[in-house]
């Protein structure tokens, strides 16, 4: 459907307010002590196992943040990195983080340094383990492939936005026998992670990672709010499928009028300048 949404329409505004309201309400409820229960996310429990394995074998952990710049996806990957780094610090393991974006680079270094400091082992942090490789996709991939092989990493965690290089990183890790956990909202790369990794975190589970790993009330509440948001979307779909079916029945199956009306409604914004 060809919708013009350069600016929010009334529908968009109401929907986003509703979704944000649901999420915020559950966050504050959880902070107020109503800690909810969430289901297990299998891949995430494997992270601890992966770091433990690195310690046993005396080999490093690799953590790739994907190709994203400073956006929501990469921030979530950094949150997971924080958890991995604290575990690694606790067990005195190394975490190698190849970075693709110069803006992300200092943030990554700080996340790692803080994690080692928080576990009381600041001396274990090696600045050389956070490496800016390249901002070019395949130069980055070749570098990561080299690191995985040379360091013979014990486990490899791939979190963030990935593109065609996903399978290069995952298959290289598989070849050195690393335990691999991947998570990405880049849906088209998930099949390759499923094929080459031990555990893959799919779709929205990616955003549930920090809640599951930290059991922090804010995150748990947020997750429940997200569930309510999905119910709201599902309800919208079910109701509108009903409306569309009714339209189809009463208009002899001709749906153009329905689409026109729908487009008009979805784009409608009171107070917008004339001439649209």
């Amino acid at each position: 459907m060809d919708l013009r949404l350069e600016h929010a329409s009334l529908f968009v505004l109401v929907l986003e307010l509703l979704l944000c309201g649901l999420i915020l309400a559950r966050i504050f409820a959880a902070r107020g002590g109503r800690i909810p229960f969430i289901r297990r996310i299998p891949g995430l429990s494997a992270i601890d196992e992966g770091v433990g394995r690195a310690t046993e074998m005396g080999r490093p952990v690799l953590f790739s943040l994907g190709l994203g710049g400073l956006d929501i996806v990469t921030l979530q990957a950094l949150a997971v990195l924080g958890h991995v780094a604290r575990l690694a610090a606790r067990y005195a393991s190394r975490v190698i983080v190849p970075v693709v974006d110069a803006v992300i680079f200092p943030v990554t270094e700080e996340v790692l340094r803080d994690a080692y400091a928080a576990e009381g082992k600041p001396e274990l942090f090696q600045p050389e383990d956070v490496r800016f490789l390249s901002d070019q996709q395949f130069a980055y991939a070749s570098g990561v492939m080299g690191i995985i092989n040379r360091e013979s990493v014990a486990s490899s965690f791939l979190f963030g936005s990935f593109f065609a290089e996903s399978l290069i990183l995952a298959e290289a890790g598989h070849q050195v026998g690393a335990v691999q956990v991947a998570g990405t909202p880049s849906t088209t790369q998930i099949p390759f992670f499923i094929a080459a990794c031990d555990y893959t975190i799919i779709g929205e589970e990616y955003y549930a990672a920090s809640a599951y790993l930290t059991q922090e009330p804010t995150f748990l509440g947020s997750l429940i709010g997200q569930d309510w948001g999905k119910i709201a979307l599902l309800a919208t779909i079910v109701i509108m499928v009903g409306v569309a079916s009714l339209w189809s029945l009463t208009h002899g199956g001709a749906m153009t009028g329905f689409e026109e009306k729908l487009t008009g409604f979805l784009q409608y914004m009171p107070g917008a300048a004339a001439g649209r």
Binding site: I23, V111, P185, G229, L233
Partner: peptide, 23 residues
Amino acid sequence: FGIGIGGLAMSLRVWLSLEKGTY
């Protein structure tokens, strides 16, 4: 849709400085 709502929640937390943990 799920990813969108997840991203929305994360954006909301970052924007209002509700995000916890490292950094």
